[in-house]
């Protein structure tokens, strides 16, 4: 099932839309193909969601274009290293990479000067909304319970899911802020990623985790964890009964990380267009659908223009959240 994502575009993005479409010249030919091996940069480690999506996409691009697509995990600096490698590569189409939501957060917290302006968006391939998960024996039955407790006992509860200032931290703190609460009324416990955080939750070390719902799906399925909320405005197909924050919260807060395939700054239109077309074909294939299904993720796609606007809107929204919770440099 593919879903259009135009509805995510905020007012600011819609305003920017005209400017973007007018500057982006439409290439007549989209028949560029790579003539030798392509390097596919992944800013995150092997085994994670970005890695899995990228390797699958690289594999299918390889079949399509019949040149090797070599995946390289350039980890480090909370994503800065890999994103810089994508941004600074030669814009010849022979280096592309998985630009993720961190392109919209890194510069706000002062890790780098690089923004989404310094890369060439090609297509959005995955959108991973956050969630609120608690252990099966938790006293909290709903997100409302959690927020009420946190409001009355600020600093009593702990949550985890990623590093300090990481996207899942922004999900929680941003939600608290949007609900008019102190973003620190639930204490953030940093972790090396979603997996160790869920381990910590099961072991009783923290009260809740806020990773992507898709990452916690198997534990929710097995009854080990309970999903209190999905930070999105439409239910996840694999877990349709999880309440949506868009419905239950007054603020209608939602937050999703995303994964794109993007090229270096200044990627010629002809090349970007060829990639966009190829990725679109792939996301419409059965094999891709099956892959998405197995991960419990919704199959999404967004082209260049739309993605650029989406990134612009996300950048503004996440910047606001980061400033509100006092993590901005």
């Amino acid at each position: 099932m593919r879903k259009p994502f135009t509805r995510f575009l905020g007012q600011s993005a819609a305003a920017g839309l005209l400017a973007v479409t007018s500057t982006a010249a439409f290439a007549d030919t989209c028949d560029w193909t790579p003539d030798r091996a392509v390097t596919f940069v992944v800013p995150w480690g092997a085994g994670g969601g970005t890695d899995a999506n990228s390797r699958m996409l690289a594999q299918m691009l390889e079949q399509k274009w019949e040149v090797p697509f070599n995946v390289v995990n350039r980890t480090g600096g909370n994503g800065v290293t890999g994103h810089s490698a994508i941004s600074n590569a030669d814009a010849d189409g022979l280096t592309v990479g998985a630009v993720t939501v961190e392109i919209n957060t890194m510069h706000w917290v002062g890790l780098t000067d690089m923004t989404y302006e310094n890369i060439s968006p090609i297509a959005l391939i995955d959108i991973v909304p956050s969630s609120v998960l608690v252990a099966a024996d938790s006293p909290f039955e709903s997100l409302g319970d959690v927020l009420e407790h946190a409001r009355e006992n600020p600093g009593d509860l702990t949550a985890s899911g990623t590093s300090l200032g990481g996207i899942w931290h922004l999900a929680l703190a941003g939600m608290l802020n949007a609900e008019g609460m102190d973003p620190e009324s639930i204490l953030w416990i940093p972790s090396q990623g979603a997996a160790p955080a869920m381990q910590e939750l099961i072991a009783g070390g923290v009260d809740m985790v806020t990773p992507a719902l898709s990452e916690g799906r198997s534990l929710v399925d097995s009854g080990e964890l309970r999903a209190l909320a999905y930070m999105h405005d439409s239910p996840m197909e694999a877990l349709p009964d999880v309440p949506l924050t868009a419905d239950v919260l007054d603020s209608g807060w939602t937050l999703a990380a995303y994964i794109t395939i993007s090229g270096p700054e200044g990627l010629p239109d002809e090349i970007a267009c060829a990639y966009e077309q190829a990725v679109q074909d792939i996301t419409e294939s059965d094999e891709w659908a099956e892959f998405k299904d197995s991960r419990g993720a919704d199959n999404v796609f967004m082209g260049r223009e739309e993605l650029r606007d989406y990134m612009m809107a996300q950048d503004a929204a996440l910047g606001e959240t980061i400033q509100a919770i006092g993590l901005a440099e």
């Binding site: 480690g45 092997a46 085994g47 994670g48 890695d51 899995a52 997996a195 869920m198 381990q199 099961i202 198997s218 534990l219 399925d221 097995s222 009854g223 080990e224 892959f291 197995s294 991960r295």
Partner: peptide, 30 residues
């Protein structure tokens, strides 16, 4: 931890879980 919770202890088991879930395995206590 990988089989019983679906929580990968390292990157090898993380990739392995991904593949096994694709093949229909749902890690969990039972």
């Amino acid at each position: 931890p990988a089989l019983v919770f679906g929580i990968p202890g390292d990157s090898v088991t993380a990739i392995a879980i991904g593949v096994l879930m694709m093949k229909g395995l749902t890690p969990g206590p039972d």
